[in-house]
Design a binder for these strands. Structure first.
Lengths: 242, 242
DNA sequence: CGATAGTTTGACACAGCTCAATAGGCGTGG
DNA sequence: CCACGCCTATTGAGCTGTGTCAAACTATCG
């Protein structure tokens, strides 16, 4: 990962100067003028774990970039059963264009920091800048691929395969040292057991049992309930049913 | 639904003249010149039920519009377990832009007719025409919403709720008389029991048992294994867990 | 140190799976 | 038109993985 601090930094707002979203996120699709324009009305905010970002059926009037932390997207049935349908990590773009009402809940799974923009500005820029829309299309296609991968996990994997798949996914998204070739990984789980259960379509108890099984089989180690060490990612992968 | 046969039809290729995709599908984003251009290299083809359209890990060199019939998108685990991750109806656009290799299988679930275009043409047009990319973004967002709805079904619903949800979805997509306010519906199932099972993350036997339960409870009628009549869509909806 | 929220463990129940047999639909050929 | 064979769907009996309910344990924080 090289730091880009070149001639193009000229005129970039201070807010955006070192922002990850400007490189890997949607802001990478904007030129200096557009960034200045956007930065005028955008603001960083820090959200405590557990806070609701977008309520079900709530009118959404802002979009955001995730700068750090993990956001969980959930859907619920009327009797309270809940399913996590997506996790967003930095530098994902948060928001559902072309629909003022969201059928989805967004909640901070960890402490989260966001850079938020008014809906109207983003929608104007999308009209003016095909590059922005292009970037958004790419992210949406990626999210669709991920959603479909999880459909396989939800529909066809066993509980132990689900838990292994989940750990693998988190390792790849969180641990900075995990390039695809890495053999081991270590990270903090961004989700509670209850969240993991909602993500995998299981109960808390089943998740817990599968984690202890992985632990007694020496595939993972867990300290303080949250900190996970995987010595052999390939062993974990074997258990993921891929 | 009004038939559009107005001044804008001037210069529209014969092939596209009465094509549904020109109104509700992606071709609606193109002007007459672009349609002419596209029509030069596009072709209609009819595909028999069961034929594979896109093999897993196969290089995709064409995109298509679905004109009639149903296409199932599947993913498989190495040991053969399979999950249907999407169904495409007319006038959906079939193909995954920005990725030459597909991790997905596409197969005709019924007899299908397609209008296919070379990959290169579509990709050139996407660069030139923001409207096309915009349309594609909208379809992708819709598919993402659908995928997330199914994640809830896969992860959190019981077998009988799954089967009811499936019937409801098919009724809404297939039966032309089903506007949202309709009370009843009748349609042919586009999928075999095995396909339904792969869609819902169940076994054939469980699907069959739940269908007979719906039948004995007089929620649906089934003739010739395929033809379904739903007298009260709201009763079916009550069983879908929504 | 006590209170609280999150996690683990155990015992048991049941929804959905597996295996096996039967029934029904449909095309082919006599 | 019927007889046959093939494929799909249904039904049954028993098993098992995961859910339910309940209790014990652990971390964290005032």
């Amino acid at each position: 990962m090289t730091v880009r601090q070149d001639i193009h930094s000229a005129g970039i707002p201070a807010l955006c100067q070192s922002c990850e979203a400007r490189h890997r996120g949607v802001c990478g699709a904007l030129d200096a003028d557009q960034l200045v324009d956007l930065a005028k009305t955008s603001s960083r905010r820090s959200i405590p774990s557990g806070a609701e970002l977008v309520g079900d059926a709530e009118v959404v009037d802002s979009y955001s970039n995730v700068l750090s932390g993990v956001v969980k997207l959930t859907k619920s049935l009327s009797d309270g059963r809940q399913q996590i349908v997506g996790l967003q990590f930095a530098p994902d773009f948060l928001g559902r264009p072309f629909k003022v009402e969201s059928a989805i809940n967004a909640e901070a799974a960890t402490e989260v920091s966001l850079c938020s923009f008014p809906r109207t500005i983003i929608e104007r820029m999308m009209k003016e800048s095909p590059a922005l829309e292009h970037r958004l299309l790419k992210q949406t296609l990626t999210e669709l691929d991920e959603a479909r991968d999880w459909m396989v996990t939800l529909g066809r994997k066993t509980a132990s395969e689900k838990v292994a798949s989940f750990l693998l996914m988190i390792a790849r998204n969180i641990d900075p040292t995990v390039d695809p070739a890495a053999r081991s990984a270590t990270f903090d789980l961004p989700l509670t057991r209850a969240d993991i259960a909602d993500f995998l379509g299981l109960t808390i108890e089943t998740v817990s049992r599968q984690l202890t099984r992985l632990r007694t089989d020496r595939v993972i180690r867990i300290d303080n309930n949250r900190h996970v060490t995987v010595d052999s990612l390939s062993r974990l992968e074997q258990r993921s049913g891929a």
